[in-house]
Amino acid sequence: MIIDSLFHRENKPLRKLAFLVTIPCAILPILIATAGFMSIPFEPLFFKNDIYLFSFIYLIYAFGLFLSWQYHRKWTPAILFAIHLISQFAFVKWGQFEWLGYLPIMTIIGTSLLNQYYRVGSLECNDPLECGKEG
Rank of each mutant, 00 (worst) to 15 (best):
M1F: 01
I2H: 05
I3Y: 06
L6G: 09
L6F: 01
F7D: 02
E10T: 11
K16T: 08
L17S: 05
A18I: 00
L20R: 03
L20E: 04
T22V: 10
T22K: 01
I27C: 15
I30R: 11
I32Y: 13
T34D: 09
F42T: 02
P44W: 00
P44H: 11
L45R: 02
F47D: 12
F56P: 02
I57L: 14
Y58R: 09
L59I: 09
I60V: 06
Y61S: 05
Y61W: 13
A62Q: 12
L65T: 15
Q70N: 12
Y71H: 12
H72E: 07
H72C: 00
R73W: 01
R73E: 08
W75T: 03
P77C: 08
A78Q: 06
A78N: 07
I79T: 13
A82V: 13
A82N: 13
I83K: 08
H84M: 01
I86P: 09
S87P: 06
S87K: 10
Q88M: 15
Q88E: 12
F89T: 15
W94S: 08
Q96N: 15
W99I: 03
W99G: 05
L100C: 08
L100Y: 03
L100P: 09
L100I: 15
Y102P: 03
P104M: 04
P104Y: 07
T107R: 09
T111F: 09
T111Y: 01
T111S: 02
S112W: 02
Q116A: 05
R119Q: 15
G121P: 06
G121A: 06
S122H: 04
L123K: 10
L123R: 00
L123A: 12
C125V: 06
P128M: 14
P128T: 04
K133E: 12
K133M: 00
E134D: 03
G135F: 07
